[in-house]
Design a protein around this nucleic acid. Structure first.
Lengths: 179, 179
DNA sequence: GGCGATTCTGCAACTAGTTGCAGAAGGATC
DNA sequence: GATCCTTCTGCAACTAGTTGCAGAATCGCC
């Protein structure tokens, strides 16, 4: 649903082949909209079909050969329209909150270890974000408008991870040593 | 993926028919794992098939007639195991953060109104949660273990909404009056 | 220059979630 | 007692996302 827009954004930031995109979806843009290489290849096909991107001319267009894509004006316009479009937030789906609720009914046996594991994962992700922030958005320099927007996005990621770290910490405290 | 567990939890809290479950998924348990009536009916069928729930005996088992389901011991055990199982957090997918990133590339025209709309929605959800908290978890009373876990879940919802309210407020400030 | 590992692209088949619609039951109204 | 509206259940068809695998190109190594 948002995948085509994610791909257009990524390609505008830098024209890429399918695999390059896949790698960039493992970090950077993928922090906020993840995708597998399969989804990406399929969507590249659709976007090309729709005339929103094109493969840079290459000698032999055969299977197994890398194709670099760039965004066409129609694709840029398509993305521009989406930025201002109305689209309701998707309802929350959190397996972890759900599990806690299940634990209230059938008991919290074994939950503690799992919460600790998630806590470690979220702490790691938070650290990763903080490194990126320090590298790309140093405190002193007040960047351009695009820079400030990108920083805002990263800030969102950071505060979301902080939320999870805090919630998990509180949950572990509440569970006590046995849970 | 988590839907069967959500349904088992809901049915353990109270045996219900498909439609009752659907209504409860529009609030309460559905705040953390939403589902449409279609998903619910299909999953009820599967769970019954698998011997984890059963329809309470009714005179005429025909189409169009309400069926009330209850959880069988196998279903309770199935849920209990899931509570302690290892399951990685799903990567984040936020269309809103993605859009902000797209705005950094193609401009933020029209985005402001959308952010304001989302802000209002998140504020409303937050208020809803706060009313529930006051009703079900008054400050003075320190509840039982299950109560405390349920409160923790609600707290998660509350703090997530607070996060969005704060992020959206910061984003609107950053965008300035034109965006 | 032949061989094996890796890179890059993609097909096929699957599960999860969504949307549109429709039929049966039962109550409300005249 | 016929008609209409609502409730409840469910089928069918769709879109989105995931998983497993496989073929072609390329690169490193001997």
């Amino acid at each position: 649903m948002s995948l085509p827009y994610a791909i257009l954004t990524a390609l505008l930031e830098k024209p890429s082949s399918g695999l390059e995109l896949t790698r960039r979806f493992d970090k950077s843009i993928g922090y906020f909209w993840s995708a597998t290489h399969q989804q990406i290849y399929r969507e590249l096909g659709r976007l090309e079909e729709a005339g929103q991107i094109r493969a840079l001319p290459s000698p032999v267009p055969v299977r197994g050969q890398r194709k670099e894509y760039e965004v066409l004006p129609a694709g840029r316009e398509f993305l521009r329209e989406w930025v201002g479009a109305a689209e309701d937030p998707k309802p929350l789906r959190s397996a972890l909150l759900l599990r806690m609720r299940a634990a209230a009914v059938v008991g919290s046996a074994g939950l503690r270890a799992e919460l600790e594991r998630h806590l470690a994962l979220h702490r790691a992700q938070l650290d990763e974000y903080l490194v990126i922030e320090e590298r790309d958005f140093p405190a002193e320099r007040r960047g351009s408008e695009p820079d400030r927007l990108r920083h805002l996005v990263l800030r969102g990621g950071i505060d979301l991870e902080r939320f999870w770290v805090e919630w998990l910490t509180a949950a572990l405290e509440e569970l006590g040593p046995e849970g």
